[in-house]
Design a protein around this nucleic acid. Structure first.
Lengths: 244, 244
DNA sequence: CACAACTAGTTGTCTATACCAGTTTATAAG
DNA sequence: CTTATAAACTGGTATAGACAACTAGTTGTG
């Protein structure tokens, strides 16, 4: 039960202790619920100041790896629940997984100048050109969602209506060789406005799920901002949360 | 632009500084993006050690209120998006991360026999005993959600109302030594029923977010089934999706 | 004018020490 | 044996100071 600390390393000492403890936890040498060596013992063992040890432990406590108990000791955490890694699926994959046949109708395809709100979401300057698309998402002939997509034109300058009606993600990943890294998504309950109700063939004021998603490339740049309105009576959003 | 620090107070000095800065931020005296006084200036002003000031600032940085920039200064955060969204699973953590003060009221605590639906969710036999709890989740004095929790009595036979009103997860993980592995969660948009509307102080028929969660232990057995009704006008559910 | 050097200001890392506040265990008193 | 007390642990708070790394502006030099 040991790790090395190199005082001449370029890496901060607290960071080395932090990583050392983390590896003991992930290797299973320190089991969940088990007490780690006391702060003073770590000071002696690695010949460092207690404040330095505390900085390492603080970071691990903040990340949920460790739990402090005054007068008793510091213990390995039981593991936090975090979002799973399987979330980034498209409407198409999602519906197929539910055994339905997904299609979509492209309502609108045009170029616009970024508004203040959109430029913030996409981290670009105001008035830069965007591609705006609106489409109806359909599963087994039932309209499920009304979706507005915004992409910086700079990233996909030659995107056409024809390409977009097929598989946008395929085009972006395979043709443009842009790799998607992650997405931030928010969901809220709302009620259908007049236009949305018309398109989704529901009553005005009926419950809908408003989902906003910003997708980021591996470069860190936002690729797209999507706002979707899902029928509340037909769509249930599922997530699997896993222990880290 | 000032707050008081009482060195003879029962409260730790770093905590007083922390709360002082927080109040300057929420009162608007310190605007988002603005630089706060430097660490050394705070040391002089309140005649405390720099490590003490750093502890206060560290906590605020961890909570997303402040952002450190080496060589430049420490600045008030730009809002919520800046903060990582991982690990926001419990209502308590979630609301704290949004800078709100979460509390809850236990409305009901009793034992019932499992219905067909509940026995299926919890993978137990029908008519087995369950503990049912209902509570109101409150953030900054505003009712945010109405929650029903169901646990198999077999797993927590001596759970009392008193324990449950404190931290249920702490009890389960630390006292009962049950380790949580993962959870399945679903969200859908709905409208408030009469009882829900009353409890949440909204109109009947107002949009709500219905969240159902089943939490599983490492043994694979379901630990709990929770159904929560969140106010649609006050609650936005955020997720970070990562490519697998 | 361009550029390097310097300087003052910031946070980042680290030391060494001290005392406070809970918890457990050993020890002495009854 | 039981009970109180003390000692020896644990983490929590706080001090005072040092040097490193980074930023931004100023100043001096070519």
């Amino acid at each position: 039960m040991l790790f090395e600390v190199d005082k001449d390393s370029l890496l901060p000492i607290y960071f080395q202790i932090e990583e050392g403890l983390k590896s003991l936890i992930s290797s299973g040498e320190l089991q969940p619920g088990e007490m780690i060596p006391s702060e003073r013992e770590l000071c002696d063992r690695y010949d460092v100041s207690r404040m330095t040890v505390r900085q390492a432990i603080n970071n691990l406590v903040n990340d949920g790896f460790l739990i402090r108990k005054r007068g008793k000791g510091t213990f390995v955490g039981m593991g936090k629940i975090e979002q799973g890694l399987k979330g980034l699926t498209s409407f198409t994959e999602d519906m197929k997984a539910r055994g339905m046949n997904p299609t979509s109708i492209l309502l609108d395809f045009r170029e616009i100048k970024a508004t203040a709100a959109l430029s913030a979401k996409l981290q670009i300057h105001e008035n830069e050109w965007l591609i705006e698309m609106q489409r109806i998402r359909i599963a087994d002939d039932i309209p499920m969602a009304y979706e507005s997509v915004y992409l910086p034109k700079e990233l996909v300058p030659e995107l056409t209506k024809e390409i977009a009606s097929q598989s946008l993600y395929d085009y972006i990943e395979k043709e443009k060789k842009l790799a998607i890294a992650h997405a931030d998504q928010s969901l809220e309950a709302s009620v259908a406005k007049q236009k949305e109700a018309e398109i989704l063939q529901i009553d005005e004021g009926a419950p809908v799920l408003a989902i906003e998603r910003t997708t980021f490339l591996t470069t860190g740049k936002p690729l797209e901002f999507v706002r979707s309105i899902y029928r509340g009576d037909r769509y249930k959003f599922k997530i699997e949360l896993v222990r880290s």
